[in-house]
């Protein structure tokens, strides 16, 4: 059993990728994923992600194990009010920030991280979605530096911060800082390379990693098999697949 810390519904504009809640539920069943934290793909591309968030929450209504992580743009003047309104929704456990897509520095997110913490929400910082080498020529979007997310977690110690879509090299590079932070988690969606999960575990400790698929952008099966292959101890595996995410997102 597991918690998927990064799944999406909605459409990706550059390839025919579309995730529906029904498909997500099927993918969860097929991969023994018990709970998922879900954001709207469309929200990355809207100046104001609110309509995408509203659509997401409408679609998630009545789904007991699928939690919302709406996307907030800190370049919207009313982001504080948006965050507060989202915090009142039972199904919202996190907000997802996409500084690269919306055009601001991660350091700007400190107040948002603190406000989210005050409302019991986790902050997820999206480092990338698509491989930078495959971006359409008219949208070349550099990824977010993991060091900036680490600095955010250090600056807002009461906040719970999840760095989403870090690569293995980035994790190994910042491992020493990451190990010291108890309020920062890394999702495994974009870890790759031989023994990637084992290497990340050795570098930052099993408690800092959370299982995530990046479905429907990635095959969910890839994430499952990647963790499975690491042949971790039962305790480490249970933490990465479920327990750590329960702590990171305050799930029961």
């Amino acid at each position: 059993m597991s918690v998927d810390a990064a799944a999406y519904v909605g459409a990706w504009p550059f390839r025919p990728i579309e995730g529906t809640v029904a498909d997500l539920a099927g993918v969860m069943r097929a991969n023994r994923v018990r709970q998922a934290v879900v954001s709207p793909l469309d929200g990355f591309f809207y100046a104001d992600p609110s309509p995408a968030n509203r659509r997401l929450l409408r679609r998630l209504a009545g789904r007991r194990r699928i939690w919302g992580a709406p996307i907030i743009s800190l370049r919207m003047a009313d982001w504080r009010a948006q965050l507060q309104a989202l915090a009142e929704k039972r199904q919202v456990r996190a907000v997802r920030l996409a500084p690269a897509f919306h055009g601001y520095k991660v350091a700007k997110a400190q107040e948002a991280a603190e406000l989210a913490a005050k409302h019991g929400l986790t902050v997820v910082v999206q480092m990338r979605v698509e491989d930078e080498r495959h971006h359409p020529p008219f949208v070349k979007l550099p990824g977010v530096a993991l060091g900036d997310v680490v600095a955010l977690a250090a600056a807002a110690p009461r906040a719970r911060v999840v760095a989403s879509a870090a690569r293995l090299g980035e994790v190994l590079g910042d491992a020493e800082h990451i190990r010291q932070l108890k309020n920062l988690w890394l999702d495994v969606s974009h870890l790759d390379g031989l023994e990637c999960v084992k290497q990340a575990r050795d570098a930052v400790g099993a408690r800092r990693l959370v299982f995530a698929t990046c479905w429907p952008f990635f095959y969910a099966r890839s994430a499952v098999l990647k963790v499975d292959e690491a042949e971790l101890s039962a305790r480490d595996k249970a933490g990465i697949m479920m327990g750590n995410a329960e702590a990171a997102f305050g799930l029961g």
């Binding site: 031989l194 999960v197 095959y219 963790v227």
Partner: peptide
């Protein structure tokens, strides 16, 4: 391999 992991790649086929 070793640039990519066996799990992620087997998952491409088993997930398709």
């Amino acid at each position: 391999s070793p640039i990519r992991s066996y799990g992620a790649t087997v998952g491409k086929v088993m997930g398709a």
